[in-house]
Nucleic acid binder design. Structure first.
Length: 426
RNA sequence: GCGAGCGUAGCCAAGUGGUUAAGGCAGUGGUUUGUGGUACCACCAUCCGGGGGUUCGAGUCCCCUCGUUCGCCCCA
């Protein structure tokens, strides 16, 4: 194809589906506002180093999925593959911790990962996420999960499940890692190739393997939950109790480990039954070590991110798109009438009516046809006679009732008009 | 990065080697130069994602390429 098209893994969001995006954003904005979270906007690209140190060099996201390039000053920059690292960098750089207390932040925007595009996965995609910085209270973990849950419920999504796990602190994990490797070593030959490789590099991720044989071997493997210290254990029990009190059902999944290195203790995912292989709609957890790792003071933190494209897919599954209809469709013919029609349209718009002006100049019959298709409640008609008398024909399209009214009178009785509109559309 | 499927107009879609590429929806014009939603008529792909090859002849077969879908990896 000779014409230029959007590059692989990117997509235009056209007017027909923008409503779903706006629904999701406004629901989230309202809920986050009520929970006293503040929006933060950070740059789309950062020093490459930030992601390498923050996310972990051994992770796939950093190892093979980053959009990294040199700028003209020979600096290595990377299009952000996720939101947390940038938010934490900003938090440290601007000394937000010095403001004391807990910082509750949220963000939304485009993220970039160089992956093979697939349903629910693109190279440029959008996330909405929250970060609570400065609290180690278990209630913070519960709060962020409750908010995620509230957003998804309010949007109207069904068939979701919350999976919960604890991966303990660094020492719990290193104890467990040893135990897991000790258990798996004798089975090394029977593991799938990826898992064999991970045995030496990142053994915990073997738990995630979808290979049936590997999973069978894992059935008798030790569980991370048996290796939690008493403190970690207590945390995990508390979070479960809190969610239970909040009436949020959850499932413990001891094999849930996340792909980014910075997580500690609580990790969770919310999955949908109605998506394909990319079923995770929201994921997150606690990351107590990240802030200090990026040069800030020891700061406990917890957060999550949602994949907006995936939410849009789910939203589209459960509602037929209905075209937004307009209040008034204005048809006109003749020089004077056309000029008056424009003025009338502006006046109605300024008063908050959704008003569409027919610009075609074609025959009245054609204009009426378009008026009908626009789904307008009423049609305003201006021809030579109306222009002369400074009146306008007001026609209710559903009933077909039509009457002449002075333009000034129309504009001075807007409240009444508004009432008639709600009746006409009801 | 790997495996498999698909790619015909804005959308859905027939066509499986032989002159001019069905049909439906949408769109545009008309019947109707001041009144719509129904109906009827007309128009709407010199071309089958792109490039190359086989053939007397290709949308139809082969190769490459791009895109897309599903899965793996991984992830939101």
């Amino acid at each position: 194809m000779a014409s230029i098209q959007a590059i692989r893994g990117t997509r235009d969001i056209l007017p027909g589906e923008i409503g779903d995006w706006q629904t999701i954003e406004s629901v989230a904005r309202t809920i986050l506002g009520c929970a006293a979270y503040q929006e933060i906007r950070t740059p789309l690209f950062e020093q490459t180093d930030l992601f390498e140190r923050g996310i972990g060099e051994a992770t796939d996201v950093v190892g093979k999925e980053m959009y990294t390039f040199k700028d003209r000053g020979d600096r290595s920059l990377t299009l952000r593959p996720e939101g947390t690292a940038g938010v934490v960098r900003s938090y440290v750089e601007h000394g937000l911790h010095a403001q004391g207390g807990v910082q509750r932040l949220w963000y939304t925007g485009a993220m970039f990962r160089y992956e093979r595009p697939q349903a629910g996965r693109q190279r440029q995609f959008h996330q909405l996420g929250v970060e609570v910085l400065g609290s180690s209270d278990v209630r913070a973990d519960a709060e962020v999960i409750a908010i995620a849950n509230q957003i998804l419920q309010t949007i109207g999504l069904k068939n979701l499940s919350l999976q919960l796990n604890s991966i303990g602190d660094a020492s719990d994990r290193s104890n467990y890692r040893e135990a897991l490797v000790a258990y798996l070593a004798p089975f090394q030959d029977q593991l799938d190739p990826d898992s064999q490789h991970r045995l030496s590099h990142n053994p915990l991720r073997i738990l995630d393997s979808k290979d049936a044989n590997t999973q069978a071997i894992l059935d008798k493997a030790p569980s991370i939950l048996e290796y939690l210290s008493p403190d970690s254990q207590k945390r995990f029990e508390q979070i479960q109790a809190l969610l239970n009190d909040l009436g949020i059902p959850s499932t413990i999944n001891a094999r849930l480990v996340r792909g980014l290195d910075y997580y500690t203790h609580t990790v969770f995912e919310i999955q949908s039954e109605d998506l394909g292989a990319q079923a995770t709609v929201c994921a997150g957890g606690r990351y107590d070590g990240l802030v200090s790792q990026l040069g800030g003071p020891e700061t406990p933190a917890v957060g999550w991110a949602m994949g907006l494209e995936r939410l849009v897919i789910l939203l589209q599954q459960l509602q037929a798109q209905k075209l937004p209809s307009v209040d008034f469709y204005i048809v006109s013919r003749g020089e004077a009438a056309e000029a008056q029609a424009l003025k009338l349209a502006q006046a109605l718009r300024q008063s908050g009516f959704k008003t569409e002006l027919d610009l075609s100049g074609s025959a009245f019959g054609k204009q009426f046809k378009r008026a009908d298709r626009s789904g307008a409640a009423a049609c305003l008609i201006l021809g030579d006679a109306e222009a002369e008398a400074a009146t306008v024909q007001l026609k209710w399209l559903k009933s077909g009732e039509q009457s002449a009214i002075a333009q000034t009178e129309l504009l001075s009785n807007l409240d009444q008009l508004r009432q008639q509109l709600t009746h006409a559309t009801a």
